[in-house]
Design a protein around this nucleic acid. Structure first.
Length: 878
RNA sequence: GGGAGCAUAGCUCAGCCGGGAGAGCGCCUGCCUUACAAGCAGGAGGUCACAGGUUCGAUCCCUGUUGCUCCCA
C-alpha cells in the first residue's frame, strides 16, 4: 500500500462494483421497512455544480445510512427538462448557425432539443456517479418521459375538472428576450437607481394635476389618474377629466384605496395594460386597457408616433418632449426594485395577455394544515414559517409558457365552433362534428411537472406497488432557495392527488458560497467545479468538506483549506489502515476473550460504543456535520493518536511466549474490530475509502454498503476503563509538557517520579507502566510519598498525583519558578470562582444536587493542585 | 413596508436540556520517533456584537439597540 491515499485508484472501481452488483436497487418488499428519497431532478442538460454536490451528498448519506440500518432504501433519481434553460441553449446553438427556431418550425426544433438532450442528458447523471451517489439508476426518470407526461396531462385535466384551472387575461411577467411569460417567483427583484418623473397632467377646464412615475413611457397607455379617497389635497378633482399630454386622450380622476398618498405627489397614473396594480385598479373601475408595448418591448400602434421604438428609447423621447412642453415639473433620483428574468436578467415587462392559471387558495388550505398539524416537519423548524408565510399569501399560479420545449397544454380549440376541449388524449373530433382541432400552442411551467415528482416517478397515475409501498416518501432534501418553486408545489399536489403529503420531513440546507461569501455564479466566474475537486482531492474529501463545520439550513463558504483538511483526514485513515493491515497478518483473528483485554483495549472499545451512539443520534437529528465531527475526532485523536500508539509495542514485540502471542492476537482483534466499525460508521460520509479499507479487513458480506449499521451496546461501555485511561493520559500529557518546556531532547529518556498517596492510582500506574514510559518517553518510578523533594526537578500535578522530572543541570530554576507561578495564578483564579459559588447560600439551596456535587469535587481537586504547586514553589524559592 | 437569519480565537465555523467556551486553518517551539511531514509532541490566542431583563447561575432564554446577509411585497 502506498503511503498516500490516491482516490483515483479506487473510486471508479468501487462505483462500478456497486452499480453492477445492483446494490443501489430497491425492490418492493412488504416484509421490510421502506425508506425513500426522491432526488431533486437536476436540469437534464446541465452540469453538476456545488449546490448539487452538497444536496446529493446529504441525500446519499441518509440513504446509505438507512440502507445499512436495514431499511429497504430507495433513492429515486431523475432529471428535469428545464423548459426555458434547455430551449435557450438550443436556440443559442441555432443562432451560431444563423438560424432561429422559427426557421425550423416547432416540430423540427423539438427534434433538435431532443437530440441535444440525448447528447448531454447523461452528463449530469454520470457526474452524480462520480460523487458516489447510491441512487437506483434502474429507476431513473425524466420529467418528459412517457409516464411523467401522462401524469402531467392527468393532473391538468383533473384540476380543470375540479375548477382549479382557468384561462384569463391577466398581467403577467413577460420576458421580452425569452419571449415567454414567467411566474411571479421567477422574477428576481433588484434594487436599482432610477428616476421619479413628476409630470403635469392638465385638467380639462383649467389647472393641472401632477403625477409621479418611474416609467413615463407607459403614460401612452394611461386611462386614468388615481388619488386616495381621503386625500384632502385632491378631493375636489375626483371625477374631473384630464387631458393626457402628448396623446390628448381624455380620462378621469378616480379615487382608490390602493394609492399611497405619501409616495410622489399622491396622484398615480393608471396604466392597466402594463402594471399589475394598475390592472387591478382598472378592473375595479371598469377602465379600458390600452396596450402600448409589445412582445419585443417595442411600442405598439397605440403609441402613435412612438410606434416601433424600444421602451427605453421611447422613455427618453417622451421625457424630452414633456420637458419641451413645460410639463415635466422635476426629476428625482430614487432607488427602486426592478424585476428581472431569472434566466437572462432582462428587465421584465408586465404585460397583459391571456394565460392559464391554477387557482391556489383551495389547494393551499390543506397544504397549510399539513404543516400546522405536524404531518410535515421542516428541519430546521424555522423554514416552516417561511413556507407558511408564503402559502398563506398565495397568489394564483400562471402555468402557461410561450415556449416549445415542455409539456404542451392538453387543450384543443375547434376552429369550426370555437369549443374548447380539455383532454388527456388528443381528441379526433369536436362535439360540433368538426375535426379542425388545434392544440393550445403553449407549454406548461417546468415546475408543473416537477410538482408531481414524488408520485409520478413511482408510477402514478397507474396504481403501482411502488406507489403503494414507497409513498409518502421519507424525507425531501433540498436547498432553501426552492422552497416556493418546488417544495410547496409538491406538497399541495401530493395532498390533492394522493391525499397524503409527499414526504414527512423536509431537510433544508443552505447555499454553497465562494470564499468571499458570494453566491457562485457563471457571470461572476467564481464557481468551483465539483468534478475538478473530485479529480484533485477525491469525492470523499469533497463530501466530507461539504458537510463538516456546517449546520442545517446555514450557508457554507467554500474554502480550499478546508478541502485540504478533509483530504488529510482521508490520508490519515489510509495510513492508520496501512498500519493495521501490516500488522494483522493473514489469518482471521479470533475474538478476544474479555479477560484478555488490556486497559487500552477496553478503553477504545468503550469509546467506540460512545461514538456509535453519538453518530447514530446525530444522524437521527439531521446533524450530519456533528456526526462527522464525532467520527473525525474519534478516528484521529483517540484511535490514531492514542490507541495505535499503545498497541504498537504489543504488535512489535518479538516475544513468542504463549502470553505474548495471545496478547498480540487480542490486539489484532481489537484493532481490526474498531477500525472496521469506524469504517462502517464513516461509510455514509466517505463511501469510497471506507469500502476500500473494509474490503481488506476481516469482514462478512460483499460490500460495506450492506454491512449492518453498528448498534450501540451499553453493556460494552466501560466507565472504569475510560476514567483510568483519562488519568493516565493526563499524566502522560503532563510529562510531555515538562519535556517540551524544559527542552528535553526528543530522543532522550527522562526519569519521572510519580508520587501518589492513593493506592489505586499507584496500582494503575504500575499495572500499565508501558503506557506512561512509552508515550512520555521516560523511566517511571511510582512512590506513595517522597522523603526528600528534589530541588533539581520539574514538577506537575496531574491525574491526582504529583510528578517530578529530575533534571539535574538541565533545569533553569528561574524558568521553572516562573512557569509554576503562572500555573498557580490560574489555579488560584479557578479556585476562587468555585469557592465563591460554594459560599453562595442561594446556589447551595437552589442548584440541583448533582451540580453542587460537581462544584465540590472541582474544589477538592483544585485545592490539592493549588497546595502542591504552592509547596513546590516554596521549595524552589528555597 | 413584512419576514427570516447571522454576529463566538487572526481567518472559517461548531457549540444539545442554561452549570464560566471548542475544532480546522494560521501562528510560536521542538521533532523526518519504521502507519502517516497531507505527519508527531507541546504552546500562545476569547469582555461569546452592545444594553437591559429572567435566574442561585446566561454564549445559550426574553426585550431592545447596532451592523451584515437573504427572502417576500
Amino acid at each position: 500500500m502506498p503511503t498516500t491515499y490516491d482516490p483515483r485508484a479506487v473510486e471508479d472501481k468501487w462505483y462500478r462494483y456497486w452499480e453492477e452488483g445492483k446494490f443501489f436497487h430497491a425492490k418492493v418488499d412488504a416484509a421490510r421497512k421502506p425508506f425513500c428519497i426522491v432526488m431533486p431532478p437536476p436540469n437534464v442538460t446541465g452540469q453538476l455544480h456545488m449546490g448539487h454536490a452538497l444536496d446529493n451528498t446529504l441525500q446519499d448519506i441518509l440513504t446509505r445510512w438507512r440502507r445499512m440500518q436495514g431499511y429497504n432504501a430507495l433513492w429515486m433519481p431523475g432529471t428535469d427538462h428545464a423548459g426555458i434553460a434547455t430551449q435557450a441553449k438550443v436556440e443559442e446553438q441555432l443562432a451560431k448557425e444563423g438560424l432561429t427556431k422559427f426557421d425550423l418550425g416547432r416540430e423540427k426544433f423539438l427534434a433538435r432539443v431532443w437530440a441535444w438532450k440525448e447528447q448531454y442528458g447523461g452528463r449530469i447523471t454520470h457526474q452524480l456517479r462520480r460523487l458516489g451517489a447510491s441512487c437506483d439508476w434502474d429507476r431513473e426518470r425524466f420529467t418528459m418521459d412517457e409516464g411523467c407526461s401522462a401524469a402531467v396531462r392527468e393532473v391538468f385535466v383533473r384540476l380543470y375538472e375540479q375548477g382549479l384551472i382557468y384561462r384569463d387575461y391577466y398581467i403577467t411577467n413577460w420576458c421580452p428576450r425569452c419571449h415567454t411569460t414567467i411566474s411571479d417567483i421567477e422574477v428576481e427583484h433588484q434594487d436599482q437607481p432610477g428616476q421619479l418623473y413628476y409630470v403635469r397632467y392638465p385638467v380639462k377646464g383649467g389647472g393641472s394635476l401632477t403625477v409621479a412615475t418611474t416609467r413615463p413611457e407607459t403614460m401612452l397607455g394611461d386611462v386614468a389618474v388615481a388619488v386616495h379617497p381621503e386625500d384632502e389635497r385632491y378631493r375636489h378633482l375626483v371625477g374631473k377629466t384630464l387631458i393626457l399630454p402628448l396623446v390628448g386622450r381624455e380620462m378621469p380622476v378616480i379615487a382608490d384605496e390602493y394609492v399611497d398618498p405619501a409616495f410622489g405627489t399622491g396622484a398615480v397614473k393608471i396604466t392597466p395594460a402594463h402594471d399589475p396594480n394598475d390592472f387591478e385598479v382598472g378592473r375595479r373601475h371598469n377602465l379600458p386597457q390600452v396596450k402600448v408595448i409589445d412582445q419585443d418591448a417595442r411600442m405598439t400602434d397605440e403609441a402613435g408616433e412612438y410606434k416601433g421604438m424600444d421602451r427605453w428609447e421611447c422613455r427618453k423621447q417622451i421625457v424630452r418632449e414633456l420637458k419641451a412642453q413645460g410639463l415635466l415639473e422635476k426629476v428625482e433620483d430614487i432607488g427602486h426594485a426592478v424585476g428581472h428574468c431569472y434566466r437572462c436578467r432582462t428587465v421584465i415587462e408586465p404585460m397583459l395577455s391571456r394565460q392559464w392559471f391554477v387557482r391556489m387558495k383551495p389547494l393551499a388550505g390543506p397544504a397549510i394544515r399539513a404543516a400546522r398539524e405536524g404531518e410535515l416537519r421542516f428541519v430546521p423548524e424555522r423554514f416552516s414559517k417561511i413556507y407558511l408565510n408564503w402559502m398563506e399569501n398565495i397568489r394564483d399560479w400562471c402555468i402557461s409558457r410561450q415556449l416549445w420545449w415542455g409539456h404542451r397544454i392538453p387543450v384543443w380549440y375547434c376552429r369550426d365552433c370555437g369549443e374548447m376541449i380539455v383532454s388527456r388524449q388528443a381528441p379526433q373530433q369536436c362535439r360540433c362534428g368538426g375535426s379542425r382541432l388545434e392544440q393550445d400552442p403553449d407549454v406548461l411551467d417546468t415546475w408543473f411537472s416537477s410538482a408531481l415528482w414524488p408520485f409520478s416517478t413511482l408510477g402514478w397515475p397507474e396504481k403501482t406497488p411502488e406507489l403503494d409501498y414507497f409513498y409518502p416518501t421519507s424525507v425531501l432534501v433540498t436547498g432553501r432557495d426552492i422552497i416556493f418553486f418546488w417544495v410547496a408545489r409538491m406538497i399541495f399536489s401530493g395532498l390533492n392527488f394522493m391525499n397524503a403529503v409527499p414526504f414527512r420531513e423536509i431537510f433544508i440546507h443552505g447555499l454553497v458560497l465562494d470564499a468571499l461569501g458570494r453566491k457562485m455564479s457563471k457571470s461572476l466566474g467564481n464557481g468551483v467545479d465539483p468534478i475538478d475537486i473530485i479529480e484533485s482531492h477525491g469525492a470523499d474529501s469533497l463530501r466530507f468538506m461539504l458537510i463538516t463545520g456546517n449546520t442545517p439550513g446555514n450557508d457554507l463558504r467554500f474554502h480550499f483549506e478546508r478541502l485540504d483538511g478533509a483530504r488529510n483526514f482521508a490520508n490519515k485513515i489510509w495510513n492508520a489502515s496501512r498500519f493495521a493491515l501490516m500488522n494483522l497478518g493473514d489469518d482471521q483473528p479470533e475474538a478476544a476473550p474479555d479477560e484478555a483485554l488490556t486497559l487500552a483495549d477496553r478503553w477504545i472499545l468503550s469509546r467506540y460504543q460512545a461514538v456509535v451512539r453519538d453518530v447514530t443520534a446525530y444522524l437521527e437529528a439531521y446533524e450530519l456535520g456533528e456526526a462527522a465531527r464525532v467520527l473525525y475526532e474519534f478516528i484521529w485523536n483517540e484511535f490514531c493518536d492514542w490507541y495505535i500508539e499503545l498497541v504498537k509495542p504489543r504488535l512489535y514485540a518479538r516475544d513468542e511466549s504463549p502470553a505474548a502471542r495471545q496478547d498480540r492476537a487480542v490486539a489484532r482483534d481489537v484493532l481490526s474490530r474498531v477500525l472496521r466499525g469506524a469504517m462502517e460508521l464513516l461509510h455514509p460520509f466517505m463511501p469510497f475509502i471506507t469500502e476500500e479499507i473494509w474490503q481488506r479487513l476481516p469482514r462478512r458480506g460483499p460490500t460495506i454498503m450492506l454491512a449492518p449499521w453498528p448498534v450501540y451496546r451499553a453493556e460494552q461501555r466501560d466507565q472504569t476503563a475510560e476514567a483510568e485511561m483519562e488519568t493516565l493520559m493526563e499524566i502522560i500529557r503532563a510529562i510531555r509538557h515538562i519535556r517540551n518546556e524544559m527542552n528535553v531532547p526528543p530522543g532522550k529518556k527522562a526519569d519521572a517520579v510519580l508520587v501518589a498517596p492513593q493506592e489505586n492510582l499507584r496500582r494503575l500506574a504500575v499495572a500499565w507502566p508501558g503506557y506512561i514510559e512509552g508515550l512520555a518517553a521516560c523511566r517511571l518510578q511510582v512512590l506513595p510519598a517522597l522523603a526528600e523533594r528534589p530541588a533539581q526537578a520539574a514538577h506537575a500535578v496531574a491525574g491526582g498525583a504529583e510528578i517530578f522530572v529530575p533534571l539535574k543541570g538541565l533545569i533553569d530554576l528561574d524558568r521553572e519558578t516562573a512557569r509554576l507561578e503562572k500555573e498557580l495564578a490560574v489555579l488560584g483564579k479557578d479556585l476562587a470562582r468555585v469557592r465563591g459559588k460554594l459560599g453562595n447560600a442561594a446556589f447551595l439551596s437552589k442548584a440541583p444536587a448533582a451540580v453542587v456535587e460537581k462544584e465540590r469535587a472541582k474544589e477538592t481537586e483544585l485545592a490539592v493542585k493549588y497546595g502542591a504547586v504552592e509547596k513546590r514553589l516554596s521549595i524552589l524559592r528555597g
